[in-house]
Design a protein around this nucleic acid. Structure first.
Lengths: 144, 144
DNA sequence: TTTTATGCAAAGTATTTGCACGGGA
DNA sequence: TCCCGTGCAAATACTTTGCATAAAA
């Protein structure tokens, strides 16, 4: 639970109190390999902290996102999913079977070449990019 | 308005009637260079067809999306935007100033190399991908 | 003791559904 | 005439806000 500890310290050093409800939310999110939406976080965190309110989940997610700890993820099925942000970019690799999410570094140079190429052809100045890949993770491929 | 005609024929050949409300919706969407959400489509289409109801906009969008004519676009600001689908992929180039959207072909080989590289490193089997670029279009760059 | 955080309830917002009427085939 | 499509109203789902109480500093 080291990651959760770190998040709580991060909250604290930004003037937010590391309370029990926030701890419950943070622990669920940091220990999940999947994208979770607010209701899922609520249901999971409530097991450990039954008094938790859904509103607190929303408010905690909002703060974590602003601090850059949490990243919102857009999926074909919905856009209120969140995962721990290990990168500023949405360079995600999402398993369509088990829902697990991971970041990939990829070949930075290849991607930059692609962006430069598009800039030349289109006349755009590219400032940001989202790249998300969907497929089957190694574990799910083994099982099938 | 050739594109709108084509969409209406497409609707018709799939058993849906080319009615006046649908025509109003289709004309707005096919003539827009920007991503539009259902309410924007409603407001714009209503100018030409005042009796239009918002529900019909939702239902028409749903049909157009299923037929593959319309594609839902996820943006940082929201996920209920739609643009004409000229490609199965979300290879979009979006202007952060004027909101205009275009598709880019890019260098297919470069992208495929990138995906293959990620597959090797991660053990994933990649089935789909989304690539969206955000920046400034040529017109907006000129103006600034 | 002071200030922030919480949970409930209520208010907004966005989207979908039920249904009687209207219009295309 | 028949059936699909429409718009209204109501229902539903999701998210935010107001406020009195509770908990942290």
């Amino acid at each position: 639970m080291a990651e959760a500890e770190y998040w709580l310290q991060h909250l604290q050093s930004n003037g937010f109190r590391p309370t029990a409800p926030r701890k419950a939310v943070v622990e669920i999110i940091t220990s999940s390999r999947r994208v979770l939406n607010p209701m899922e976080v609520f249901d999971l965190a409530r097991v450990h902290y039954p008094k938790l309110g859904l509103v607190t989940v929303y408010r905690t997610i909002e703060k974590l996102e602003k601090l850059g700890l949490l990243q919102r993820v857009h999926l074909p099925t919905g856009c209120q999913g969140y995962v721990a942000a290990y990168d500023r970019h949405q360079h995600l690799l999402i398993c369509q079977k088990c829902g697990s999410v991971e970041y990939f570094g990829g070949d930075q140079e290849t991607l930059e070449n692609l962006l430069t190429d598009v800039e030349k052809k289109s006349g755009y100045r590219v400032r940001e990019h989202w790249l998300q890949l969907f497929g089957e993770c190694a574990d799910c491929r083994e099982l099938s």
